[in-house]
Design a protein around this nucleic acid. Structure first.
Lengths: 412, 412
DNA sequence: CTTTTATTAAATCAAGTTGAATGATTTAAC
DNA sequence: GTTAAATCATTCAACTTGATTTAATAAAAG
């Protein structure tokens, strides 16, 4: 509880991660220092969400006095996290000085690593993607992948004329179960060599940066909270179409990971898919059996063995019978999954994103909107809206990039 | 943000509810006053969970200094929320003075109101049930029920030689969907006259006390958090056997109600129950179709039309074929529901409670423990434990009684 | 139409207040 | 004599308060 230096300054960022900014533990008391740190976060988050704002407006948003906001804003300007825009005019009174997030105040890289590809994106503090990088691969071993990841990240930073020290950190979106505490994947299906490998620590050491792991679905969900449809929705469930199908949830505005880090495993809800067939996960009737890219390509494999993701648009345009059949079956399973989520979580929105081509996603959403009223409890006055995610293709990488930012901004 | 008098004193409790103790809003800043209120709550909660404790022990639990704890404890002693026990001895150093929750510091009543019964319980601040009251009825109208509720509450208070002003409030556990903001039930099935009736305000006015509504399942879940298995489990799902079957969840130590207050509607998960029959709720294959007291009695109605809840123990003892058949079928549906919860919420525990006789609950739990390993994803290293709730029969009323206490204690 | 004055609201200054932290001291045991 | 709890007296950090400054628009006067 000693007073610690909150300034970023020139200390190594990885060090900063090891000695994180003070956040109150469960059932720990607060003191002025914590209150101050929290207030700084609150101001930052307020400006991020509703900026640009004048000091007076921040004040009324946060229920802190003008004076306090003035002091905090000054500090944040000093730290380079906020920047001053012009003065407003057209109204009476001294014209307000607008402040906003300083895009150059910091940067973060997000990567999405899966069995078939590696995507990276570099964000500035305002959340603007500055540059993407993409690489297709096939079940790479860690020895192959890790150097490539490092190279990709350093490349992005160099391209933009930045220094590594300006990065706040690297977020990594990963498939399959993970142990966030240990910083590892745990028994990821079809991904040999990665089980229990301390990815976080290895990358953190190679890059001398804090590294944050999340499932790709949760990363996408958090990204959506950052700059998408979730910006002013406190409770939603994100359905992520990846190699399989995953889910991530934001509850009370915060990511919820459950007791064992792997909440939101949407793909393995037992919805009686494929006639209650046994799933490779060990369960039966898993949703993923009928809703996933692999099930789609399995369905197409006889008639169109050459089909790839990019062809699906066209097939839909042609009303391909097999594709339509798959979609109808997928909608059936999805409906059960969504009704489950509605009843269990009662979220405000269900957001769809990921690598299934947008027209197919739209088809599914439209169909589901017709089906759900006949499946859900009639008495409920309110039910979630189905939304298309604002970031689609690189949703997971984008989301992962917000992890280091989330870590600093989101008021805990 | 003006300094407000936090002392309880002699102001009307209903007034106190209208002007609640200051709790920080989302994205609002903190000041010393809020910090202090929070710290008081933290101290109370710490003592409640691990008491009796010395000031020094509270200090190390909360990361606040000895001196600060001394000040806060003094204030709480003054307010009568804590009491001093004896000094410890047997160790070196000045003997610690133990403090604990003062049972006489306040009281709360919980009622469980359903179509077939009314149960009430009076708790003291230490969470000890002082007296129960119970009443069987059948689909009472509000005009019949409300006077009886008032009478029952006043009776309990009188019996214990207390004054109504000593009550912190009344918690009400209710079936079926409710609108907590409005303080009403919303289209409760088979409960005419109660739809949108402002129960909370009516009771609050009749009693001049703050009244808190929850679903019976959520109330039971919160009760379990207060003095049961949930005491040191931050994330669990509670399965409540009532007239139907409900659910309530505690996530990150806090009740989660979703965006529309009705999260945890376990009974209407579409698990393909009864061959995907249509449920009276409008959905299909709802869990409740095969797991509920009414489905059980429907199954028994031919062979044993006279059977009642109290007879079920005996039937189980006799290995009654119909009962066993029902249990097996119920376990089948429950398994799907629980696997869903495991995958979606990844809680630390799943707790069973409510009005299904304990031996039947135990039978189900045992059976489920055998089934789940074959249904869940194999790769997961951790999975929830299945537990029997510590409060069974009156779980909802007991839980409801903790609502007013929860409201004051739980650090927000 | 220009100039002056009033009004409005943002931002800041200086002092006051609150409650936690600090360091020294007292107390009661072994 | 040692140890540890509890308290006393003081310090300190950060928020609040109330007054003041600043810069704009609107209204009034010349």
């Amino acid at each position: 509880m000693k007073s610690t230096d909150v300034q970023a300054g020139s200390i190594s960022r990885a060090d900063a991660a090891r000695k994180p900014s003070p956040v109150r533990k469960k059932l720990a008391g607060t003191n002025l220092e914590f209150a101050h740190v929290l207030n700084q976060r609150v101001v930052l988050e307020t400006v991020r969400l509703w900026g640009p704002l004048s000091r007076a407006e921040i004040s009324s948003h946060t229920y802190l006095t003008n004076q306090t906001i003035s002091n905090i804003v000054d500090k944040l300007l000093d730290r380079g996290l906020l920047e001053t825009l012009g003065r407003r005019s057209g109204q009476r009174g001294q014209p307000a000085i607008e402040v906003n997030i300083n895009p150059k105040g910091g940067y973060a890289v997000g990567i999405h690593l899966d069995r078939d590809h590696l995507t990276a994106v570099l964000l500035d503090l305002a959340g603007t993607p500055l540059e993407y990088a993409h690489l297709e691969w096939s079940f790479p071993s860690p020895d192959e992948a890790l150097p490539l990841i490092e190279k990709m990240i350093r490349g992005l930073v160099e391209d933009q004329g930045l220094r590594m020290e300006e990065l706040w950190g690297v977020g990594v979106g990963l498939p399959g179960p993970l142990d966030i505490g240990a910083g590892t994947l745990v028994a990821p299906p079809n991904f040999p060599g990665w089980d229990e490998l301390p990815i976080r620590d290895i990358l953190s050491k190679r890059l001398d940066l804090p590294v944050f792991l999340e499932t790709d679905a949760m990363a996408a969900a958090m990204g959506e909270r950052w700059f998408g449809a979730g910006k002013d929705v406190e409770d939603y469930f994100y359905v992520f179409f990846g190699v399989g199908i995953g889910g991530g949830m934001i509850l009370n505005g915060q990511p919820y990971r459950g007791a064992f880090d792997n909440a939101g495993m949407f793909g393995h809800l037992p919805v009686g898919a494929s006639g209650n067939m046994r799933c490779s996960c060990g369960g039966i009737g898993c949703l993923e059996l009928s809703v996933s890219l692999s099930s789609l390509f399995a369905a197409l494999s006889m008639a169109r063995p050459e089909a790839r993701v990019n062809d699906l648009d066209m097939l839909l345009g042609e009303n391909d019978a097999i594709l339509i059949g798959w979609l109808e079956n997928a909608a059936e399973s999805l409906a059960a999954g969504l009704v489950t989520i509605e009843h269990l979580l009662s979220p405000k929105a269900i957001i769809f994103g990921g690598r299934l081509p947008v027209p197919l996603q739209k088809w599914l959403i439209e169909r589901l909107e017709m089906m759900l009223p006949q499946r859900r409890m009639r008495a409920l006055r309110h039910h979630p809206v189905l939304l298309q995610a604002s970031a689609i293709e690189s949703a997971a990488a984008l989301g992962a990039a917000t992890l280091p930012l989330f870590n600093e901004f989101a008021p805990g």
